[in-house]
Nucleic acid binder design. Structure first.
Lengths: 229, 229
DNA sequence: CTCAATTAGCGTCAGTATGACGATAAGCCG
DNA sequence: CGGCTTATCGTCATACTGACGCTAATTGAG
């Protein structure tokens, strides 16, 4: 089988928008670039697709390599692809961006490729022209995807630990949507929406005040009815 | 600037899931392949990304070239990317799939690349192992995207002509969702949802019975409240 | 030990949306 | 004209929503 050299070849990369809720704000995982171009700048983690690697596998590998996050606790889904002809000054590239949602993990620090890894507030990274390449656009799209999916999927639980209180889940919504929600109505909706959360026998007082029941994520793939902004 | 030949290159293609509602069912535009592999088989339209072409531009170009559809009346959005290492027997490829929604146009026939182009029922194309490559998976994802977006966006209007009746819009929902909807409740919801449809002065009797008012698509990017399945 | 502070979780109530379906309107066709 | 078809408006019981009052269960200060 010929290699059909008459069609242009492109370098395919995978970039990651890894979001978490930390210190009451939405944060994104950034790595300090160790190579040109943009050496020393904070950027989204990512890397080249390997010759016999599936896209999702590449994203999962990058997540491990560059962020050392425990993959089993991280939601990972494809976001979108970006291929403007001049998006990378080195050569023609197309990047397949993935969106990862993680709980507030202890301290995810640098892996092998990256000189350094750090959580940074999304707001900060989008304020100036911080991010190189088209990473600001990718980050914006990732945040918008997360905001939208919180409405009609139980994905907010991906920002929480294995068990969580309703208040913790509510804070996820409040941070991602940048609104405040009535705690009582939120509690009613979440517990009445079939398959969103599952009660556990435990309670916790880690948020102070009266002990709160702990829940774990339910199995419903979608929320019926949705939680509208 | 060096070409960094140490990273693997991939052939990037763009494939299209072009959907319409015809004869009371959801149909997809297929082309008969004129080249190997799978010569003579019906497949999704698509082609290679050109050296200095943006992804969206490539999708729009393919839509024109292969389907001769008037692009201004077609909604086009990125769907997802597919890059399993063996998805194309010739070489390593990654395809960026786009979803296009078109009204029931007169007769979109073959363009240059394709030996033939034809609308075919989605149900038929997904029933057996009709489609080559991973096109069945892509089509399934496209249909699922369309089904979901009908709930939260006014995208159903993309399946309609420039002006349409509420009943025509309702039939779009019924076909895409494969349900029946109460005509009176649907009328109430659509006309009360801000920015979904805009009344025009005209009416039509093309559906028989009492003349129906014609509407055109509104400007709202999302439906508030959504139309739930 | 008591009390204030804090957070959880239940209850109420009015306004609104929803689904089921009746009734009327306004064309067409024979 | 009378019947057929489809459009559109109306009704009504029920469900959901948002605003907000109230009680429960813990912690920590004094």
């Amino acid at each position: 089988m010929s290699d059909l050299p008459d069609y242009p070849r492109v370098a395919v990369t995978v970039d990651l928008v890894v979001l978490t809720v930390r210190d009451g704000e939405l944060q994104v995982l950034t790595i300090r670039r160790g190579e040109e171009p943009f050496r020393g700048r904070w950027a989204l983690p990512g890397g080249f697709l390997r010759p016999r690697e599936d896209l999702h596998a590449a994203a999962a590998r990058e997540l491990m390599e560059e962020t050392a996050l425990p993959a089993e606790h991280v939601h990972l889904e494809q976001l979108a692809s970006y291929g403007a002809p001049d998006r990378d000054p080195r050569m023609r590239t197309v990047t397949v961006a993935y969106l990862a949602l993680a709980p507030d993990l202890p301290t995810p620090e640098a892996g092998s490729d990256a000189a350094d890894a750090r959580w940074q507030p999304v707001h900060t990274m989008l304020a100036g022209a911080e991010l190189p390449f088209d990473h600001a656009e990718i980050l914006r799209d990732g945040v918008e995807r997360a905001r939208a999916k919180l409405e009609y999927t139980p994905l907010a639980t991906a920002f929480c630990a294995a068990t969580f209180t309703i208040a913790e889940l509510r804070r996820v919504y409040e941070v991602v949507w940048d609104t405040t929600l009535d705690a009582r109505n939120f509690h009613r909706k979440v517990t009445k929406t079939e398959g969103f959360v599952v009660e556990t026998p435990e309670t916790t007082t880690r948020d102070g005040g009266r002990p709160a029941r702990l829940y774990r994520a339910g199995s419903a793939p979608r929320l019926h009815p949705p939680l509208l902004r």
